[in-house]
């Protein structure tokens, strides 16, 4: 079953195309990473799925329905923005009460556990909290809502390494007990890639990749060696990055296992590109150029 189905979604703001003909499906009970550079369209995509913004064209279905002004769908959806705003006089206690009212699956026990573990102050107005404390409040709402469809937009801003690790552990433990559909935009790939099952890779509003993390990871290689041996192998392939030094070269290139074997047989050094390197390399592509194979 799919939680979200998006077909030919385009969003324009004046002359700017924020999303360009995006078609994708998000499986129910999965954790999906939304990846891409700043300005790639990650937040716009999440805003449109949660009906906080309207598409210019295309359709969005959430649990099979149009989410626009659809209370049945929206009460099952929780979207934590990176710059989430709260009412001015709000303290943690008010946030917890609102959560309880708004989300049918809200779990008080989980909420107070997270508040304690992440050390969220109870007596301070939310507007006076630090960046890290605000992020912690967002994590608390997102997790304790137990919403069947939960979005986190860069949930880690301002959190120290200890708090982030606590979040990853909490997320996995609670997700294992209460499977649900979670989408999370992130730049911290080294920390988060093992938590993700699927990914959506955006670049300037276009979807470059959509599938399992393993697929993305096994589709790119870092190949290095003598440029004379390397260059003939690259014909007809999408080269994501290329660096040269005298007679030596190093590239990040798309290819399958067979390509990797062939490169090894030519005496080149071949290693799978890390997800971090791959996503960084895709982000550098001008995708007009990328469409043109070499």
């Amino acid at each position: 079953m799919s939680a979200v189905e998006i077909t030919h979604l385009t969003k324009r703001y004046g002359h700017v195309t924020a999303l360009d003909d995006v078609t994708l499906t998000i499986d129910e009970s999965s954790i999906t990473g939304i990846l891409g550079r700043n300005g790639a369209g990650k937040t716009v995509l999440m805003s449109i799925i949660t009906a906080q913004d309207q598409p210019t064209s295309g359709t969005v279905r959430v649990f099979g329905e149009d989410p626009t002004e659809n209370a049945a769908v929206l009460s099952r959806t929780c979207f934590i923005r990176d710059n989430q705003r709260y009412p001015d006089e709000c303290k943690l206690d008010h946030v917890l009460r609102i959560g309880r009212l708004f989300y049918p699956n809200w779990d008080d026990g989980l909420a107070s556990r997270i508040a304690t573990e992440l050390d969220i102050p109870t007596d301070r107005h939310v507007r006076k909290m630090s960046r890290g404390q605000l992020s912690a409040v967002g994590l608390l709402i997102g997790m304790a809502s137990r919403a069947p469809l939960t979005f986190f937009d860069e949930p880690y801003l301002g959190l120290d390494a200890t708090a982030r690790t606590m979040f990853y552990d909490l997320l996995l433990a609670d997700y294992a007990e209460h499977p649900r559909t979670i989408l999370v935009s992130t730049h911290l790939l080294d920390e988060m890639e093992n938590l993700l099952e699927n990914c959506v890779l955006l670049s300037r509003g276009t979807m470059l990749k959509h599938g399992s993390i393993d697929e993305l990871r096994s589709g790119g290689w870092e190949v290095s060696g003598a440029w004379a041996d390397l260059e003939p192998l690259l014909a007809g392939r999408r080269v994501l990055r290329e660096r040269r030094m005298g007679a030596l070269g190093i590239v990040i290139v798309e290819g399958d296992e067979r390509f990797a074997r062939e490169a090894r047989n030519r005496g080149l050094t071949v290693a799978p590109a890390s997800l971090h390197d791959l996503v960084a390399a895709y982000g550098l592509l001008d995708h007009d150029m990328a469409e043109v194979a070499r």
Partner: peptide, 13 residues
């Protein structure tokens, strides 16, 4: 679930 939480990986993995 125990394996996923212990190794910090997605349960599908």
């Amino acid at each position: 679930n125990e394996l996923a939480v212990f190794h910090r990986i997605n349960p599908a993995t």
